[in-house]
């Protein structure tokens, strides 16, 4: 285990988490005005209506797959009588369609962004960096999935090393040693994902954190007093709200 491994798998994850959480808190506190989906449907709708749901719903599936794969120990599924072969077959059958939906959706959306003049004119540098990293993560993600599908049961069993390592991060006892010998493609997928997570708070991706689930429960009509809620000053951080924008004081 060399220093690089220790850094990549024992230190970097925590740096990314700090940036992700800290950056999100900063953004939420100081740039609510910039916190939006930055929709471009106003300029172009036809392609978006196909590509965007494909991408987003695919992403929901992919996220679910990652949660199951990373968080549920192999011993638990084994206890349910699910063999490794069954598990991997299931993962591939469900994972590949979702993954391809994400990939295809993103390719079409980037194509649209590049070819539609109005949409391209509204594309920021932040968007471009984000799209590159998102695409890289997805390409490597699909790559390792398809690659291991082709290798059959000789493929790399990430549930034996990556998943325990991932869980160990949350116990603050990172088992760096597990990560030393995983294939390069997996390493790239993970490192690129780190980059994406670090960029997350500073791009439009933040809109995912405010998915409006509470819409299902709130009353239709919202009354609010002119002055908004009054709050005291918090220690350490000065409120930045001006007198004409008291909602910032929350």
């Amino acid at each position: 285990m060399n220093i690089l491994d220790t850094f990549l798998w024992g230190v970097l994850p925590y740096m990314v988490i700090v940036i992700l959480i800290g950056g999100t808190i900063w953004r939420y506190k100081y740039d609510q005005f910039g916190w939006t989906t930055r929709s471009s449907q106003f300029y172009e709708s036809k392609i978006l209506k196909i590509a965007s749901p494909l991408f987003h719903y695919g992403l929901v599936g992919v996220l679910g797959g990652h949660i199951v794969g990373l968080m549920i120990p192999a011993s638990w599924t084994a206890a349910l009588g699910i063999t490794d072969e069954m598990y991997h077959a299931g993962a591939l059958i469900m994972g590949i369609p979702f993954g391809l939906a994400v990939l295809f959706g993103l390719i079409v959306m980037i194509f649209r962004r590049r070819t539609n003049k109005s949409v391209f004119a509204a594309t920021t540098i932040s968007d471009k960096i984000m799209y590159v990293s998102l695409m890289a993560v997805i390409v490597f993600g699909i790559g390792v999935t398809i690659f291991s599908a082709m290798q059959g049961h000789h493929g790399h069993n990430y549930r034996a090393d990556i998943s325990p390592w991932f869980r160990s991060l949350f116990l603050f006892q990172p088992e760096v040693g597990l990560m030393r010998d995983i294939p390069f493609t997996f390493k790239m997928h993970i490192l690129l994902a780190f980059a994406l997570f670090a960029l997350w708070p500073f791009t439009r991706l933040v809109h995912a954190f405010t998915a409006p689930i509470h819409y299902l429960f709130r009353p239709y009509i919202v009354y609010r007093s002119r002055g908004g809620e009054k709050v005291g000053r918090r220690r350490g951080w000065d409120p930045v709200g001006t007198s004409d924008n008291s909602s910032n004081l929350k």
Binding site: F33, T36, S39, Q41, H207
Partner: peptide
């Protein structure tokens, strides 16, 4: 303007 997320 701070709470709008642009869902339209």
């Amino acid at each position: 303007q701070d709470r709008c997320r642009g869902w339209r």
